[in-house]
Design a protein around this nucleic acid. Sequence first.
DNA 1: TAGATTGTTAATCGATTAACAATC
DNA 2: TAGATTGTTAATCGATTAACAATC
Lengths: 211, 211
Amino acid sequence: MKKNGKISNAVIRRLPRYLRMLEELSVNDVQRVSSKELSEKTGYTASQIRQDLNHFGGFGQQGYGYNVEDLRREIEKILGLTHEYRLVIVGCGRLGRAIANFNYTYNRSFPVVGMFDVNPELIGKTINGVQVAHVDTLPGFLESGEVDIGVICVTKEAAEGVADVLIRGKVRGIWNFAPWDLTEAAGIPVENVHLSDGLQSLVFYINHNEK
Amino acid sequence: MKKNGKISNAVIRRLPRYLRMLEELSVNDVQRVSSKELSEKTGYTASQIRQDLNHFGGFGQQGYGYNVEDLRREIEKILGLTHEYRLVIVGCGRLGRAIANFNYTYNRSFPVVGMFDVNPELIGKTINGVQVAHVDTLPGFLESGEVDIGVICVTKEAAEGVADVLIRGKVRGIWNFAPWDLTEAAGIPVENVHLSDGLQSLVFYINHNEK
DNA sequence: TAGATTGTTAATCGATTAACAATC
DNA sequence: TAGATTGTTAATCGATTAACAATC
């Protein structure tokens, strides 16, 4: 990071989007891209894009723009996507299995190394090559130190207990899909995904869609 | 809406969170709540909460606070959660089925009325009481006019085509889980859910978690 | 009434946009 | 060189926070 100041959350949230656009350009064998072109693709202003990227360093070249491959690699470096992050999924209902599959298909740098549930019908089953184990075995599994991120796909009621186990087991971050807010008081970064929040704001816009 | 000015996106995104807190209070038979208490629960400042709520009207009472039930109902009214929204899910892979199940379990005011796929192995199967049909039958199904929201759970490649069909079929909003940005140029509100964006910013914070 | 807490205005803060000199 | 486009500073805009009078 070039600048010393703290990078705002808003900037960080835009990086994955830049990355997606760059990957697309890369796939299409586009070599260079200007902030103006990125602006058209992302909907952010060209000014904002240049501003954002400059928080981390001068990746562009005056009169030319940005080299697609270089910029992609830089953003990957900034985010830390240069190596794998091992996931355990706790809760193997449909959502847990969907995440497992999603990661297996699109997100190869986030391998699922363990899956846990309490349901005897699921335990022992193999999902994308990973056998579901009982949650009671999770603390022992975490002792291996091989887990980076815990994914919580259990009910609201069970979520807090699972979070505790994951934190005690020293995972580095939590991706929480339970409808319950795990605060950063946890001491590790937490990404709370509230699917129905998004659906509810969609409903607001449906009802206020002037036209 | 009391005030005439446009309500900012940031405010709308906070409403579902307020609603969640109020539902919890309601379940616990709490009658009244102050902006200060809501502040502790949500992490937003009391000032911001009062500001937010006042965009829509004076729901509180000086010296007392807010009546939990009333406020809950008001926010539901603002969002438009006073009646059902019928969903069709396009793409019945694990993610589509997870959404179906999620809605079936937690979101009873968003009934899934149709599920569609192209995979012959899935067509005819019943998921939470809904039979999966071939996507080719989707335009006909939409003619009934009984669908409010289309949920896109197909691959990136197929997403645009599905969006076209949904828009032509006059759904009122789209909930898009495909890793592709459907712009609001669609003419109807769209909620793009990019699961991996969240995971990637989590990784950033994992790598920059000072402590 | 006194105490509490809202509704609302004003102050502050931060993020976005505009502008342009630097330079490839 | 001339044209293009960045990097960066300054201006603007909007959102958040602070403060307090209104009032239950």
